[in-house]
Structure formats: C-alpha cells, structure tokens
C-alpha cells in the first residue's frame, strides 16, 4: 500500500473538477445509491474520469460504487456525474426504497399466511 504522507497520483482533485466544489446538477441529483447508467460510449479526448464513468456505468452502478472504483471522493464523483448528466450522456435512477418498503407485504400478513399454510 502507499506510505503515509505520500501521494501516488499527480492529479489533484481540483484539476479533475476544474476547480468546482459543487455539482452543476445540484446536490439532490445524486445521492449515494443513485443508480447511474451511461447513455453513450466514451469518446476519444474525453476526460479520463468521464470515460471511466461511462465505461463502468454500462451496467447500472451506484454512485458510491463509482466512487470506489474511481478512487475519488463521492462529492467529486457527483460533480463529474453532473457534467455528464448535463451533456445527456448518463441517466440517473433513484432507487425508490421507501415506496418499495411500503409496497412489500406486511410481516404480520406473511406470518398469518405461513401459519395458514402450515395449518392446511
């Protein structure tokens, strides 16, 4: 692993984001588990992070996972995703967790069904 106090990457994050610290798409556009899907293939001459995102997101990928893959902080990945979203190269899908949880049958009902089945 890297020694502490050493930095093995010449890319500074402000050059990756062009000096921006907040996403053009707004903070709420992407949360940690937003699924990102690329809409186009990477193009030559693209910023390498953008290309990498498009490549990884051929399959729906969560923002945290992108960050882990790229080795970048989530906030920086959000900024990059904001760029791509503005260019229409990706789409974002929010997992509707709350609604799904609501839609799932109540445990009590399931329990009753189970009991009913056993009683048959």
């Amino acid at each position: 692993m890297t020694r502490p106090g050493r930095d093995e990457d010449p890319d500074r994050l402000y050059t990756v984001t062009g000096g921006r610290s907040r996403s053009a798409a707004g903070a709420e556009a992407f949360d940690l588990v937003t699924l990102v899907v690329s809409e186009s293939a990477p193009v030559r001459g693209m910023q390498s992070e953008h290309a990498a995102i498009l490549r990884i997101c051929r399959f729906p990928t969560a923002v945290v996972e992108l960050a882990a893959d790229l080795g970048l902080p989530v906030s920086v990945v959000r900024i990059l995703l904001g760029d791509l979203l503005a260019q229409g190269k990706i789409t974002a899908r929010h997992p509707r967790r709350a609604r799904t949880a609501d839609a799932l049958p109540d445990p009590d009902i399931l329990k009753q069904v189970l009991v009913g089945l056993r009683n048959i």
């Binding site: 402000y14 610290s21 996403s23 903070a27 902080p73 989530v74 906030s75």
Partner: peptide, 18 residues
Amino acid sequence: EHRHADEDVLGDLLHLDH
C-alpha cells in the same frame, strides 16, 4: 478531501490544495 463530503468544506480544501 476524501473524508469530507460537505461541498463547502470540499471547496475550501480544493482551494488550499491549489
């Protein structure tokens, strides 16, 4: 920069980094 997710803090850190 990896540790702080807050955008304001990140902005300041990026500035310092520069």
